[in-house]
Design a protein around this nucleic acid. Structure first.
Lengths: 141, 141
DNA sequence: GTAAACCCCGTACCGAAGTACGGAGTCAAC
DNA sequence: GTTGACTCCGTACTTCGGTACGGGGTTTAC
């Protein structure tokens, strides 16, 4: 099954297996996002497949746009009883992302308009982009 | 012409006219983005239309997605001789914004797929969203 | 002539997600 | 039995764009 199920790791191996830095693992522990294993035999902590799975889950959730704080909440949900909560969180995140996309599209459109103006205006006139920043109305196309 | 051309402001009036906080004006001065006027008569600095125009230019450039450092460079350009540089900066910013938009669209699509799965899967099965975070492959639709 | 509102200056702090550093201890291999 | 890589721990620093605070001094209006 899971090839990591019975494996044990030091913090460095765990970090490499999850594709993060050692300092990141320690940071997640400080934040309470990842449990610190009880020190077993020896002076070095030993991690197992559960920690690796959690680290990977954190990365996946990050790629979906969730903050570490949100991830903490998400990963505390129960897959059997908290479906609606998880769905609501995903839906809310979608709406935030879409708002941000619209904002970025507005920026892009405004910039593209300026670039277009700049390309198609007389080279002897002052730069329309810099004029727009300076607050002078852009000449119509 | 410009109704602010001959006006003078204290820092508070200037900030209000530009729609920013007093602390923001002072922060821009510390960063070198806005010149500090030589103290004239009295103990309070006096600002004029030029400073207000510059503050407004900074805000406009921010709305287009430029960082304060980039704005510093942009506003140092000459509208008559630096057209190409301004256009290149705008074009480069457009490309960064578009890359970010694509990234956000990928996030949104992945989330939307999970939400769709969640809505259309048997309510008796574990939450597909939480299963996906946990690293289990999502069931096909 | 005094009270309210404003300005000056320096410094510290915010959030987010880490990254860096330094000194000491430990483990594995040769 | 020693070398080199790794771990532990605490603390401080990073980026970005501000915001907050505190203790003064000044100006204005009544």
């Amino acid at each position: 099954m899971d090839p990591n199920a019975a494996q044990t790791f030091t913090i460095g191996l765990l970090a490499r297996a999850a594709g993060v830095g050692v300092e990141t693992v320690r940071y997640y522990q400080r934040r309470g996002l990842l449990a610190e294993p009880a020190p077993g035999r020896g002076a070095y902590r030993t991690y197992g497949g559960a920690e690796l799975a959690r680290l990977r889950a954190i990365r996946r959730a990050q790629q979906l746009g969730f903050s570490l704080e949100e991830i903490d909440g998400l990963l505390a949900l129960n897959a059997d009883t908290d479906r609606e909560r998880a769905r609501a969180a995903a839906q809310a995140k979608i709406e935030l992302i879409e708002a941000r996309i619209r904002q970025l599209q507005d920026m892009r459109d405004a910039l593209a308009e300026l670039v277009h103006c700049c390309r198609h205006s007389d080279a002897a006139t002052p730069c329309p982009i810099l004029r727009a920043l300076a607050g002078e109305a852009a000449a119509p196309d």
